[in-house]
Simulated assay, not measured.
Amino acid sequence: MNTQSINVAIVGITGYGGLELLRLLYNHPTVHVVSIHNTSSSTEDISTTFPHLKSMYKITPTPFDPVHIMQSADLVFFATSSGVTKDIAEPFIAKKFPVIDLSGDFRLTAPDYATWYKKTPAAQSLLDEANYSLADFYQQNSHYIANPGCYATATLLGLAPLAQHQLLDQDNIIIDAKSGLSGAGKSLNLSSHFINVNENFSMYKANQHQHIPEITQQLKQWQPTIDHIQFTTSLLPINRGIFISAYVKINNETTADKLQKIYEDTYQDKPFVRVMPKDQLPDIKQVVGTNFADIGLTYNPVTKYLTIVSVIDNMIKGAAGQAIQNMNHLFDLDETTGLQLIAQYA
């Protein structure tokens, strides 16, 4: 594939994911955004709608046209809401045109999608063409990449070393997941009003979050005995960031040092996963504005429970940044290209 200049189109430009793609791709050395597309009829210059893009981008959304996109671009990002992509992806799949899909529409099998998303799924023949790709464990099996969800990314990176070594007690996997408000998308509802979020803390979608089957599906690929997890989600009064607290039992005798080494060995060649020193746990602030996942461990030898903390920026590592990382893999670029970002610490 041509690695000198990659032309891309973005569908779903006005959501948080689409805007974050525009922001990150602006400084990508080999990418040129040739077209942007709304699923609405808006034709205003993007910098008129979003003044922060003035002098950075002068590009107008155009009607969604698969033929035109495939003629002018080398890849298309779908940053649409769940339930939209499944209805517009077929022409790209038929032509094996490179797609990176940030929605949830191609992450699950049809029965699971219908159950958890409460929408009619894409045809199974289309779903079979998609490749679920956690970018740090990338394997190219398809031109259609289903980008993982934000909670799933942070959780799976936190549990991967254990599942890959068959160390998880399948009946003792407890995930307490917390996200900033941007993780809920731009659509307004009562729970996202400032007065309800500010100086507040609330749990939502207990045992019902659509990332549960996505997490279980991938864990089962690594450790086939895993059929379920206990997973809850809470809303933090911050703009962005995900904080995963996982409490898992280890199914054989071990020590804190052995567990620490497993994590360090797993991620030693993964540039975007940073393992903290033993018994040092990360916080959200150290990853906001970056494509890093920071992971820390502390083991209780009395209870045999390992506590794992995994933190990411939900809009970058949990969405647009990981999508670009997957794009870099697909086009045989160094996976860090355009993503060497330092945290917005202050």
Rank of each mutant, 00 (worst) to 15 (best):
E90C: 00
P111G: 08
F50S: 07
D87E: 13
F92Y: 14
S35Q: 12
D128N: 14
P29A: 12
S72T: 14
L108K: 04
N27L: 13
S42R: 14
I36N: 11
H32S: 15
K86E: 08
S125T: 15
Y26N: 13
P66A: 13
S82H: 01
H28T: 08
P66C: 09
D105G: 06
D105R: 04
N27V: 02
V99N: 09
F50R: 10
T115K: 15
F64M: 11
F92D: 06
V76E: 08
F64L: 14
M70Y: 09
P66W: 10
S41M: 12
P98T: 09
F106I: 06
E44P: 00
Q124N: 11
D74V: 08
L127T: 01
D136Q: 14
S35W: 01
D136W: 04
I36S: 09
L126D: 13
P29V: 09
S133R: 06
D136T: 14
G83A: 11
Y113L: 00
V99P: 06
F106Y: 11
Q71K: 13
L108Y: 02
H68V: 11
A135Y: 15
I36T: 01
T48L: 12
T80G: 10
S103P: 05
E90S: 06
T30Q: 12
H32Y: 05
I88Q: 05
S55W: 12
L25K: 10
I100M: 03
A110D: 04
G83F: 05
S125I: 13
T85I: 07
E129H: 11
V84P: 03
S47D: 14
K118W: 00
T49A: 13
D105K: 06
N131G: 08
V31D: 04
D65F: 07
V33L: 06
K118V: 01
F137E: 11
V67C: 02
S82L: 05
T85N: 02
D136I: 01
D87C: 07
Y117T: 00
D65A: 10
M70C: 07
E44I: 02
V33M: 08
I88C: 10
P121M: 05
S125G: 05
F106S: 04
S41Q: 11
S82N: 07
V99Q: 03
T109V: 06
T30S: 09
A114G: 03
E90P: 01
Y132A: 11
T48E: 10
F64I: 05
F97Q: 05
T115V: 05
P91T: 08
A94Q: 14
V84D: 02
A135C: 07
T48V: 13
N38V: 02
T85D: 02
H68E: 14
L108C: 04
D136M: 01
G104S: 15
I93G: 03
S40M: 04
I59T: 02
E44Q: 15
T115S: 08
P63S: 12
